[in-house]
Computed example of a mutant assay.
Amino acid sequence: MSDKLKVLLIRGMLYYDGVTSVEYEWIKTLHDRVDYDYVLLDPDKSVPEKEAAVEAFGVHVYPLRYSGRNSFESHRNRVAVVDQFLKKHHYDVVHIDTDLPSRYDMAKVARENGVKRVIVHSHNAMQHLHGIQKLPGFVTYERKQIARYATDLAACSKEAAAWLFNPKDQGRVQIIHNGINRDRYVFAEEKRQATREELGLTADQLLLGNIGRLADQKNQLFLVDIFNELVKSKPQAHLLLIGNGEREADLRAKIKDLGLEEKVTMILSTDKIPDYLFAMDAFVMPSLYEGLPVTLLEAQTTGLPCVISDVISSEMDFEGLIFREDLQAEPAAWAKLIAQVASQASGQDRRQYASQLTKLGYDKQESAEQVYQMYLGK
């Protein structure tokens, strides 16, 4: 009989996002001590290759579907399907990765089914937008329920903790940094050259990049406005967008309307993220909110200068690589800063920055060990 811990991860979907990448590193690093399974609550949006990647480590992925005529009925049906599942399967730990206060219902049903350790783990910081979507009092109630039913509270950053948990519960929160595999992101000049050739770029063309779900949160429509300003002074510049999502059609339409079709490349999915980061000259992230974005961590590890919005956490800044701009600033101001940053960074040794990852505590091994100790209740 296996003496491994049995852990259930509850997510909406497995996707080309930072949380999926972080969970994959936990699974890979801890597979000799933990048997993981997944319950997916929005499985039809899941990416098959991401499911296949975790299944290769023996992980069972269970798609659970529910619906309702309104939010109350959906909530009730979601609880019912997970309740039925937990009555058939035993777990030592239920680990709920979320940015939604309403996911307290998953912690509640887990405790009611006798799961001794139930973790609610915050991976985003949405306070800049939320509050217009729900009455503040109701969000406070949901956060209170999280604290009531979860045995452990965790977050990837202080901002993510402040979003999902009430102020009086902050002392319970364990900050666990999103760790990545450093070796994959050590800059390689030969891969940079090969990838730029694949993209049809010359050695002196400025390449900007953004990686993330094509969604309002990531603000890529504004990024296209920024790029449109930049090409006025840098006509040979190119923009690379990696990711897919609900704003894809809007982005394609805007790119066409601005006459930028030959200057923007969109890649909807790829497993070659490090190679594309090597090829870039600057990483641009004008997000409306973030918790602790893994793609920004990956970009810095490759030595990329990063121009980001002023709402993004400073907990993971590498020295000399982060440049913030006011989210309310005009596209022209962003474009000017990007041009300055890219010019100053030209010719720097990008390999030197990977060592900062470990110093700041974002190496995958350290993060996975923190997660395992939390599973043990230590």
Rank of each mutant, 00 (worst) to 15 (best):
A147P: 00
L258S: 02
P235H: 10
A52M: 04
L376F: 08
D363T: 10
T358A: 15
Q133N: 13
R196L: 05
D216P: 04
K359T: 15
A188L: 14
H31P: 01
A368F: 00
N210T: 15
Y24E: 15
V341I: 05
G347I: 03
F72K: 12
L64P: 10
L221A: 07
Q340V: 06
D183F: 10
L239D: 05
Y66H: 14
V284K: 02
V139P: 00
V264T: 11
R76I: 08
M280Q: 11
A150H: 00
S233V: 12
I308M: 10
E229D: 12
I226Q: 04
A279K: 13
E197G: 11
A52D: 13
A333N: 11
L304P: 04
Q217Y: 02
K45G: 01
V22E: 07
T29C: 09
T195E: 07
L8A: 15
V371Q: 05
V139I: 14
Q127T: 02
D35W: 09
V224P: 04
V307G: 03
K88H: 08
I176A: 03
Y149L: 01
V34D: 12
D349L: 09
T295E: 03
R111G: 12
G320E: 11
Q174W: 09
E248L: 15
H31M: 06
L241H: 05
T202C: 08
L268T: 14
E142S: 00
G114H: 08
K87I: 00
I119H: 07
I27Y: 09
S343Q: 15
Q220W: 04
V173R: 12
R78I: 00
G303H: 09
P305K: 02
S355M: 13
Y353G: 01
E248Q: 14
K6W: 13
Y36Q: 00
A52W: 00
A354Y: 06
L221D: 01
L206S: 07
V307P: 04
E159G: 14
R184Q: 15
A332T: 13
A339V: 10
E315F: 13
P293M: 07
E198F: 12
A339I: 01
L30R: 09
A80W: 13
I242H: 03
I27A: 14
E290Q: 06
D216Q: 14
E198C: 01
P293G: 05
D225F: 01
T195N: 08
A53C: 00
N228Y: 06
Y36D: 03
T151W: 11
A150D: 01
Y353H: 15
P286K: 10
G179R: 11
V307C: 05
G361T: 12
A333S: 12
L221S: 08
R350D: 08
E315I: 12
L304H: 03
V118H: 03
L296R: 08
A162K: 12
V109P: 03
R117K: 11
Q340W: 03
S346I: 02
A80T: 04
Y36M: 10
